[in-house]
Design a protein around this nucleic acid. Sequence first.
DNA 1: TCTCAGGTACTGGTCTTACCACTTGACCAC
DNA 2: GTGGTCAAGTGGTAAGACCAGTACCTGAGA
Lengths: 241, 241
Amino acid sequence: MALKPVARRLVPEDVFDQLLGEVVDGGLAAGDSLPSERRLAEVLGVSRPAVREALQRLSQAKLIDVRHGGSTTVRDFRTSAGLDLLPRLLVRDGELDPRVGRSILQARQSIAPAVAAQAAVSAGPAAARALRGAVTQLEQATDSEARQHAALGFWDAVVDAADSIVFRLLFNSLRLAYEPAIAALGPVMGAEVDNLDGYRALADAVAAGEATAAHAAADELLRPATEALGSLMALLEPGKP
Amino acid sequence: MALKPVARRLVPEDVFDQLLGEVVDGGLAAGDSLPSERRLAEVLGVSRPAVREALQRLSQAKLIDVRHGGSTTVRDFRTSAGLDLLPRLLVRDGELDPRVGRSILQARQSIAPAVAAQAAVSAGPAAARALRGAVTQLEQATDSEARQHAALGFWDAVVDAADSIVFRLLFNSLRLAYEPAIAALGPVMGAEVDNLDGYRALADAVAAGEATAAHAAADELLRPATEALGSLMALLEPGKP
DNA sequence: TCTCAGGTACTGGTCTTACCACTTGACCAC
DNA sequence: GTGGTCAAGTGGTAAGACCAGTACCTGAGA
């Protein structure tokens, strides 16, 4: 019996999602003016504070520009939004955007080896222990989804070992985008998380402080999935703009 | 007579900043409970909606956990916050945190070459033109600060050429952290933005589609500043934890 | 006819108050 | 122990009012 928590839609959250959708889908183009708070509240059938909360959140995400006394306008999210917008771009209306997914895997392929190399430089005994523990977790995971979660835990340990606040926050942002998509990504990532030798090699290199080896191990570990999704995308969108 | 615009503190913004400071400075540890909204409003002398807006923004930044009916608790921002928090961490109380700054330059050193390489792969004629225009801007900038802004414009063009939504949002996040610190970073970055040959070499490599050369050019361009700040930090904090 | 000061209508910013919905914990009956 | 009930406290939402800043139009003066 698989029960799941009931989804409770909060009003400002709903308003936020609706406006966000309009902005990222282009229904509201950059430079457009939004209706006034009172008008929005009336149209949506909610109170003004609810609209206000949603607008403030959009403003914090750099998606709109609110000016006291003037009208609030839509910004170009591609040039202003930060990485925290990524989860909202990857899964839209419950569906994965394959172009965003490919971009994530490409970025991962570029960045993860660098993180691994830095982890090898700064890792102490405690970090090495944590890394080995993560490998054990990975070995004990039974199904593919559990292994994907364990793999996230492994990379979490690598990022910890790297001891970099930027890499840490960057990892958090990417994980936030990745986690909701784990089930959908199972087929693509299955081979990668089954490659236990790859994880062991990476963990050993980091623990031994061998930056070059760690870099290479991470690159090898991730490359198959990156290339698999890359060629898959090339098939799906032959005439990419 | 040098007048400057009066700082218009908006109430929710002020509340947000105060609570944010408590969270990142450890005055409120992870797991701690915040006072109720009514209590906070009373203590701070503002209305509840104002407090609410601030709390919602903290919640969106993944810094607190708000539960209907229960108390709102502080989360561990190191494991939950996204990269959009970076600007707030880099400059705190008007001062730069050198450890965060060093982390940013290290991450830049790791990531930028990868972006340059991908730009070389995907750049079309338009992107190459934009890149050359950015170099021209850089050549025409007179003082150091203008050159730093022009350098940002150059990297903006590189990121555009890479045609990756993740790299684009990542760049936006880093730029948002970097821009307020430009004046303070002048001494460290001066030599880098004076290295016009380095930018030209990188632009040429990207325009020519030579990924390996672009990677190397970007690495060379950024390395001096990275190492300069790295050794500076090593001096400042000999017993880094 | 042009220019610009002033008014006016509309926008976001803030507060107050009230009520609803949910969680918690204590108490009580079974 | 188990489950039900209730009260108190919390966040969620709404309505209305007023303050503060902006955009625009209007009319007097040049």
